[in-house]
Computed example of a mutant assay.
Amino acid sequence: MNTNSKIVLGILGAAAAGAVIGLLVAPEKGSDLRNKLSNNARDLASEFADWLNTRQKDLKDVKNSLVSSAEGLAEEAGAEWKKAKSTLS
C-alpha cells in the first residue's frame, strides 16, 4: 500500500469517525440516529467501492503497459539472439 492510499484511507476513516461522533452527540431520537448512521455508512461504503474500482482500473492499465513492454523486449531479445546465432554459424 503506497503513501497516497494510506492518506486516503486515513481521511476516510477520520471522516467516518467524525460523522459518527457528530451524530452521537446530536439530540435526536434513537431511530432517527440509527437511520442517519445507516445512510452515512452506506454512502461511505459506496465512495470506498468507487475508489477501489478506480484503483483497480489504474492497476490494470499499468499491468497492460508492463506486459506490452515485456513482450516488445522479448521480441527484441529474440531478434538479437538470432542475429548473434547466425553470426557465430
Rank of each mutant, 00 (worst) to 15 (best):
M1Q: 10
M1P: 05
T3L: 10
S5V: 08
K6H: 07
K6N: 02
K6P: 01
L9R: 12
G10S: 05
I11H: 04
I11A: 05
G13A: 02
G13Q: 02
G13F: 01
G13S: 08
A14G: 06
A14E: 04
A16G: 03
A16M: 07
A17I: 00
A19P: 00
V20Q: 01
L24H: 09
L24C: 12
P27R: 08
P27Q: 09
E28K: 00
K29R: 14
K29E: 15
D32R: 00
D32Q: 09
L33S: 06
R34T: 05
K36V: 01
L37R: 06
L37D: 06
N39V: 11
N40Y: 15
A41M: 12
L44V: 00
L44S: 12
A45C: 06
E47A: 15
F48C: 03
A49N: 14
L52N: 13
R55W: 03
Q56A: 13
Q56L: 08
K57T: 04
L59G: 03
L59F: 13
L59I: 05
K60G: 03
D61V: 07
D61Y: 07
K63V: 03
L66D: 13
L66K: 07
A70K: 14
A70D: 04
E71A: 03
E71K: 11
A74Y: 07
A74R: 10
E75Q: 13
A77E: 08
A77C: 05
A79C: 06
E80W: 10
W81T: 05
W81S: 08
K82P: 00
K83S: 15
K83R: 15
K85V: 00
S86N: 15
L88P: 05
L88Y: 12
S89G: 14
